[in-house]
Amino acid sequence: MAEQVALSRTQVCGILREELFQGDAFHQSDTHIFIIMGASGDLAKKKIYPTIWWLFRDGLLPENTFIVGYARSRLTVADIRKQSEPFFKATPEEKLKLEDFFARNSYVAGQYDDAASYQRLNSHMNALHLGSQANRLFYLALPPTVYEAVTKNIHESCMSQIGWNRIIVEKPFGRDLQSSDRLSNHISSLFREDQIYRIDHYLGKEMVQNLMVLRFANRIFGPIWNRDNIACVILTFKEPFGTEGRGGYFDEFGIIRDVMQNHLLQMLCLVAMEKPASTNSDDVRDEKVKVLKCISEVQANNVVLGQYVGNPDGEGEATKGYLDDPTVPRGSTTATFAAVVLYVENERWDGVPFILRCGKALNERKAEVRLQFHDVAGDIFHQQCKRNELVIRVQPNEAVYTKMMTKKPGMFFNPEESELDLTYGNRYKNVKLPDAYERLILDVFCGSQMHFVRSDELREAWRIFTPLLHQIELEKPKPIPYIYGSRGPTEADELMKRVGFQYEGTYKWVNP
């Protein structure tokens, strides 16, 4: 592979701008107003304001973009700056750019259920340069409990009458099928589907988006991507930290609602779906819905739930269990780990287990898709061969690698495990991989909904998990304890083995 010439960040961002501006969906010269509902909250200060700053800094926003914060707290732009700027990672050389960014910011205080507050917000936006005809993007960085009041008031008082209007809704989209349907029906009564952007930030990850290209742009994968060759698929999300004093919020939802029903299920769809007619948003989402419709409700015998306990040999936070978090209700049975087996009941995947695993306070930070292939028929190497695996590593250190057998150097035919490896950090030294939120917010500006969740996708996802969630809430089974920093409950490994996964433990990928 030829040595790549190092590029400056300015040059890299210039390439990104060229890609972005050559499309006809990006209205570079139009006025846009980006409204952050819930501007005083954690999500706004840690993710949304920093993301908008990065896009502005790199010249990736339309030229005439204004940012308006809205929340109940009586704040000023200076207050917003004070709480969000520490997350910007701005350099001293960017000081003038930073001043320009905050000059485009404003803030309006108001209630979430008060019509007069929204009329005041609308008047404020109209007073901005060309504000009355601007395109408006409303980001709901809010708890779902206020979605209905907020969307109703936005629709009645704050819509642009000339430009387009788009609304970005953060997960969780309800707690179960019934609450999700209620919320979807409410929002759909106010906005068209092409105006609604239900954001799952995992769909903005580079390697998640790469799944489609790997599958449908490489001839070698087509013939082997089926039940005849693939023994099982494992989708993993692991965090090495616990709730760390923020367990009160987590306890309301648990690990299945927080990660599995959305992030992991979306990745499953991209692995299992048929080739779409095109890369058009609805063509892709149509195929994802077909996959979900082929999955039956989760069966309790295919589920393992766990909850982390303190590690007596650990240090600091590792010595504390979930129930030691003062914000967690006493005696909570909320799971911090889950392993679930699903089956896609169609011709391509009949009988292939899709194993979804996620948890907190585990032994490493990792998100990946792992396809394990069947054993080689007619073994001539005296059971020395391990199964081939194709691994798409989402985070950290984005990579695609194939675990395969090669001859060990020497005189004899002794096979050993090795890999074919594409590590993004080595291959793409001159490429700026956008943060997931950067990519998705740019998608909203461009009107691309491919990486957002459609209402029928959402409904099918909740259909699969709601009976299990209701059973857990009714019966309150005690989750299996696992030690902070471990791989999780051993019962999860036993479940995976029972459905056909072979864990060798003899080879570990190392970032080159």
Rank of each mutant, 00 (worst) to 15 (best):
A6E: 15
L7Y: 13
L7G: 08
L7H: 15
L7T: 09
R9P: 07
R9D: 15
V12P: 12
C13R: 14
G14H: 13
G14S: 15
G14K: 15
I15Y: 09
I15K: 11
R17D: 11
R17E: 10
R17M: 12
L20H: 07
L20Y: 12
L20K: 08
F21R: 15
F21C: 12
Q22H: 08
G23S: 15
G23M: 15
D24L: 05
D24Q: 06
D24N: 14
A25G: 15
F26G: 13
F26A: 10
H27A: 12
S29L: 11
D30Y: 14
D30I: 11
D30A: 09
T31A: 10
T31P: 14
T31K: 15
H32A: 08
I33M: 11
I33N: 06
F34D: 04
F34Y: 10
I35P: 05
I35W: 01
I36Q: 02
I36C: 04
I36G: 02
M37H: 07
G38T: 04
A39L: 06
G41V: 06
D42C: 02
D42K: 02
D42L: 03
L43F: 01
L43K: 01
A44P: 01
K45R: 15
K45G: 05
K45I: 08
K45E: 05
K46W: 03
K46N: 03
K46F: 03
K47G: 00
K47N: 05
I48N: 00
I48A: 02
I48G: 05
Y49C: 00
P50S: 09
I52H: 06
W53V: 02
W53R: 02
W53H: 04
W53D: 04
W54A: 07
W54E: 09
W54C: 07
W54Q: 12
R57W: 02
R57C: 07
R57S: 06
D58I: 09
D58Q: 09
G59C: 06
G59W: 01
G59P: 01
L60H: 07
L61A: 01
L61G: 02
E63P: 14
N64V: 06
N64F: 09
T65Q: 03
I67S: 01
G69V: 02
G69E: 01
G69S: 06
G69F: 02
A71V: 01
A71W: 05
R72A: 02
R72F: 04
S73I: 02
S73E: 05
R74E: 15
L75T: 10
T76D: 14
T76H: 11
A78P: 13
D79F: 06
D79P: 01
I80F: 09
I80Q: 08
I80C: 07
R81D: 05
K82T: 13
Q83H: 11
Q83V: 13
S84Y: 14
E85P: 03
P86D: 09
F87C: 07
F87D: 06
F87P: 06
F88V: 06
F88W: 05
F88E: 03
F88A: 04
K89Q: 13
K89C: 13
K89P: 05
K89T: 08
K89I: 08
A90N: 12
P92W: 08
P92E: 12
E93A: 14
E93Y: 12
E94L: 06
L96R: 12
L96G: 12
K97C: 09
L98Y: 06
L98C: 08
L98E: 05
E99R: 12
E99T: 10
F101D: 00
F102P: 00
F102E: 04
A103K: 15
R104P: 00
R104T: 05
N105I: 09
N105Q: 11
N105T: 12
S106I: 13
S106Y: 15
Y107A: 07
V108S: 07
G110R: 01
G110V: 02
Q111A: 14
Q111Y: 14
Y112K: 00
D113F: 10
D114I: 11
D114K: 14
D114M: 11
A115M: 14
S117F: 10
S117I: 05
S117T: 10
Y118T: 07
L121V: 08
N122C: 15
S123L: 15
S123Y: 14
S123R: 15
S123I: 13
S123E: 14
S123P: 00
H124I: 07
H124M: 10
A127Q: 15
H129G: 11
H129P: 15
L130F: 12
L130K: 10
G131M: 09
G131L: 08
S132V: 12
Q133Y: 13
Q133W: 09
A134E: 15
N135R: 07
R136E: 03
R136K: 10
R136L: 05
L137C: 15
F138D: 05
F138P: 01
Y139P: 05
Y139N: 06
A141Y: 03
L142S: 00
L142I: 07
P143Q: 01
P143M: 01
P144F: 02
P144L: 03
T145W: 02
T145S: 13
E148R: 12
A149Y: 15
A149Q: 10
A149V: 12
V150P: 05
V150C: 12
K152Q: 14
K152M: 14
N153M: 12
N153E: 13
I154E: 03
H155E: 08
H155N: 15
S157L: 11
S157Q: 15
C158W: 04
C158G: 06
S160R: 09
S160F: 05
Q161W: 13
I162W: 14
I162P: 14
G163P: 05
G163W: 04
W164P: 06
W164K: 07
N165F: 07
R166S: 05
R166C: 00
R166P: 01
R166T: 00
I167E: 00
V169H: 03
K171D: 02
K171L: 03
K171P: 03
F173H: 05
G174N: 00
G174H: 04
R175E: 13
D176E: 07
L177A: 11
L177K: 10
L177C: 09
S179T: 14
S179R: 03
S179N: 04
S180C: 05
S180E: 05
D181L: 09
D181N: 13
R182A: 13
R182D: 14
L183T: 04
L183N: 01
S184T: 15
S184Y: 09
N185F: 11
H186Q: 13
H186R: 12
I187K: 01
I187L: 13
S188P: 06
S188C: 09
S188V: 09
L190S: 08
L190M: 13
L190H: 13
F191I: 06
R192W: 10
R192M: 12
R192A: 12
R192K: 14
R192E: 10
E193G: 00
E193A: 01
D194K: 12
Q195E: 14
Q195I: 05
Y197F: 13
Y197A: 02
R198F: 05
I199W: 03
I199T: 08
I199M: 08
D200C: 01
D200P: 01
H201E: 08
H201K: 01
H201T: 05
H201M: 02
Y202N: 04
Y202Q: 01
L203M: 03
L203S: 01
L203N: 05
G204Q: 01
G204F: 00
K205Y: 06
E206Q: 09
V208P: 01
N210T: 09
L211R: 03
L211C: 07
L211G: 00
L211A: 01
M212F: 07
M212A: 04
V213E: 03
V213Q: 09
V213F: 10
R215P: 02
F216N: 01
F216Y: 05
N218Y: 01
N218Q: 03
R219W: 09
R219G: 14
I220C: 11
I220F: 13
F221H: 08
F221K: 01
G222E: 15
P223K: 09
W225D: 01
W225N: 00
N226V: 05
N226I: 05
N226E: 07
R227T: 10
D228T: 10
N229V: 08
I230R: 01
A231K: 14
A231Q: 14
C232S: 15
C232T: 12
C232Y: 05
C232M: 08
V233W: 01
V233F: 04
V233A: 06
T236Y: 06
T236R: 01
F237A: 07
K238C: 04
E239F: 01
P240H: 11
P240S: 11
F241L: 05
F241C: 06
G242C: 03
T243W: 02
T243E: 03
E244K: 13
E244Q: 10
E244N: 13
G247E: 08
G247I: 06
G248T: 02
G248R: 06
Y249A: 04
Y249Q: 04
Y249E: 03
F250I: 03
F250Y: 15
D251Q: 05
E252N: 13
E252C: 10
E252G: 15
F253R: 03
G254R: 01
G254F: 02
G254L: 03
I255K: 04
I255M: 12
I256R: 01
I256Q: 05
I256E: 03
